[in-house]
């Protein structure tokens, strides 16, 4: 009975989604004028949509070439702060719930030779790629989240191939906190040096150069460190826990 009900609910869900997507595709017209927007504070309206604004004005307003990064870090930076916090909350919760269950057993099976030697070679490249992805977030595709997760998967590889591999819990959490504090402080400095929270108060520099786009690279570096250390600590927690 329950199974049938869940199947029916799933089918209804997917049918309604399909219907909605069909409706969207049938009424899709990108450059149509009806997407003009209203500014809710002074109720002025402009004859362009939000996506059009992003595509047209990103370079002038934020100094980033990668529009996705500009949206993630500048226009919707507050959401990014929130998402980072979600991950932080999840990592804290995992650590909190599994904390008392630790016992480090030594009798873990060694991985085979190919994996061990291979991961030694791959690890530095994984770390370098991750760092590249988040440092160049404003220039090339990628950013803090992808970079951090690439770094964390490098450490995952180490954990898989060396069962005794262990990262210092305390240092990880200190790194995590410092990165988070950096992000919030960059935002709060916006209140002091400029008008709004998270506003870009640094010089935008030459568009297209590594040192440009003001606070975007700084925030993305913080996010990269934070995501990397959080994901690594979650995986380590799960690996070390005993039933």
């Amino acid at each position: 009975m329950r199974k049938q009900a869940s199947v029916v609910i799933t089918v209804i869900f997917f049918l309604s989604l399909t219907f909605a997507f069909y409706q969207i595709s049938s009424s899709y017209n990108y450059m149509e004028n009806k997407y003009d927007y209203t500014n809710p504070i002074n109720e002025s309206s402009a004859n362009e949509s939000v996506p059009q604004h992003y595509i047209k004005d990103t370079k002038n307003e934020t100094g980033a070439i990668n529009v996705v990064t500009a949206i993630v870090v500048e226009y919707r930076g507050f959401d990014t702060l929130g998402e980072v916090t979600v991950l932080f909350t999840a990592a804290t919760g995992v650590g909190f719930l599994l904390y008392n269950l630790y016992s480090r057993k030594k009798n873990k099976r060694e991985a085979n030779l190919i994996l061990r030697e291979g991961s030694k070679i791959v690890l530095p490249f994984a770390l370098l790629t991750g760092a590249y992805i988040f440092i160049h977030g404003h220039l090339t595709p990628g950013g803090g989240f992808p970079g951090g997760s690439v770094i964390a998967s490098g450490f995952l590889l180490m954990m898989l191939s060396y069962p005794k591999f262990f990262m210092n819990e305390k240092r990880l959490s200190v790194l995590e906190s410092l990165a988070g504090i950096t992000f919030v402080l960059i935002g709060l400095f916006g209140l002091i040096f400029a008008t709004y929270f998270l506003q870009n108060y640094l010089n935008l520099g030459n568009v297209g150069y590594l040192i440009s786009a003001g606070i975007i690279p700084l925030i993305y570096i913080a996010v990269g460190f934070k995501v990397g250390s959080e994901l690594a600590s979650v995986i380590q927690n799960l690996k070390e826990v005993q039933e």
Binding site: N39, P40, I41, V50, Y75, R76, D79, G190, Y196, Q199
Partner: peptide, 16 residues
């Protein structure tokens, strides 16, 4: 009261 964050809405986010 409104509080703009980073960019003026609707391009950015605001607290209302």
């Amino acid at each position: 009261i409104y509080e703009i964050i980073a960019f003026s809405p609707p391009v950015g986010i605001y607290l209302a």
